[in-house]
């Protein structure tokens, strides 16, 4: 119990120290800046010059801690990982593209890429699709807000927690035994034999994807629901007066107006899918042909301690993210231009 107490005290102390350090840094440097380049005594041109000098230094004082963190924890590692991917497991011998060549020939890697592609096709489309359907349905019903809240709830649940929840749904007992997993209970209730869902190759990947779809649909729904509400009602009314029915209105008027949002939702979920790790790690750890890149990378890093191959796999994930990253940056820049 003592070490628990010590740990809690440590955590509280950390919060206090961190906050104090932040405050001390920001206040301190600003005070120093105003002090060193004070404009009190001088006047006219000299004062103006000092004012300007201060205002060109101050942004960097504000930015410094953030930039430091980003550099050490994100920017430097990106370059270092790329470098390591060109070295062998120990990180000492340069092997060129050896690790990548190995990966291309490795059946586990091939399996992972294939699975990742499947995940990329199925999860974003299903999550976006369900999200859109639920958003549209819920906006028309009086209990829609409750429905949305319930569908949104899995967003708060960890991937691991969700994995346990769904493993319980997929639970399998031998034929003849009473099934306590919901899915097998339904299947046997309909007169079919129960299945060990998690160990059926190919289909088991789909069952793992269901977990992520279950989590991400709420995200898609919330964003798309807001977009749907942002559609000017006049356009819908105009279409109705023009004689369009509900389906025509949905596909001709609503969908085109929220298309940009659909793309944003889709890409956001795509990024999540590319990084998905916890679900596979908790459910199968890559067994029964469910391996994906993130889990494979973790294995090479933590089970085999081969940093070269682990890095190479990480770089492959990064390359997959890169197009979306560039697109995001372009979009952000365009927005800045209009601001």
């Amino acid at each position: 119990m003592d070490d628990v107490l010590q740990q809690l005290v440590g955590a509280i102390l950390a919060i206090v120290i961190a906050l104090a350090a932040c405050v001390a840094y920001f206040w301190g440097t600003n005070w120093l800046l105003d002090r060193v380049l004070s404009s009190g005594s001088s006047s006219g041109d000299a004062m103006t010059k000092r004012d300007n000098l201060r205002s060109s230094i101050r942004p960097w004082l504000f930015l410094f801690p953030a930039l430091l963190f980003l550099s050490v924890y994100l920017i430097y590692p990106v370059f270092e990982t790329v470098r390591l991917s060109l070295f062998d497991g120990s990180g000492r011998t340069f092997v060129g593209f050896g690790n990548y060549a190995w990966a291309l020939g490795d059946p586990n890697f091939q399996r992972s890429v294939l699975n990742n592609v499947l995940w990329l096709i199925i999860v974003p489309s299903m999550a976006t699709g369900f999200g859109l359907v639920i958003a549209v349905l819920a906006d028309r019903l009086w209990w829609g807000n409750i429905a949305k809240s319930l569908v949104f709830m899995p967003m708060a649940i960890s991937f691991v927690g969700a994995s346990v929840i769904w493993r319980f749904v997929y639970d399998y007992r031998g034929e003849g035994d009473l099934q306590i997993g919901l899915l097998n209970a339904i299947v046997t209730g309909l007169g079919f034999p129960p299945q060990a869902w998690i160990t059926m190759p190919f289909w088991n990947s789909i069952f793992l994807m269901v977990i992520l779809i279950w989590i991400q649909t709420g995200f898609a729904m919330v964003i798309l629901s807001a977009a749907l509400r942002g559609i000017p009602e006049e356009t819908l009314e105009a279409a109705r007066i023009d004689g369009a029915n509900d389906f025509r209105i949905f596909f001709d008027i609503m969908i085109p107006q929220i298309w940009g949002t659909i793309v944003v939702v889709w890409t956001t979920i795509t990024i999540v899918v590319l990084k998905v790790f916890d679900i596979i790690f908790a459910m199968t750890n890559g067994q029964w042909d469910t391996e994906v890149l993130a889990n494979l990378m973790f294995k090479w890093m933590f089970v085999n301690f081969d940093y070269g191959r682990g890095s190479a796999i990480a770089v492959v994930i990064m390359l997959a993210v890169l197009p979306i990253m560039i697109w995001n940056i372009r979009r952000a820049n365009a927005e800045q231009g209009t601001r």
């Binding site: 942004p59 590692p77 993210v321």
Partner: peptide, 30 residues
């Protein structure tokens, strides 16, 4: 605030939003 490279830093932040954690693990662990 107005200062040089502001647009570049914003773009950097937007880019880092999607960098996979996997890229950071090995170097940071070392």
């Amino acid at each position: 605030m107005r200062f040089p490279f502001r647009g570049l830093i914003v773009a950097l932040v937007v880019g880092l939003l999607v960098v996979p954690l996997q890229m950071s693990l090995i170097p940071l662990l070392s």
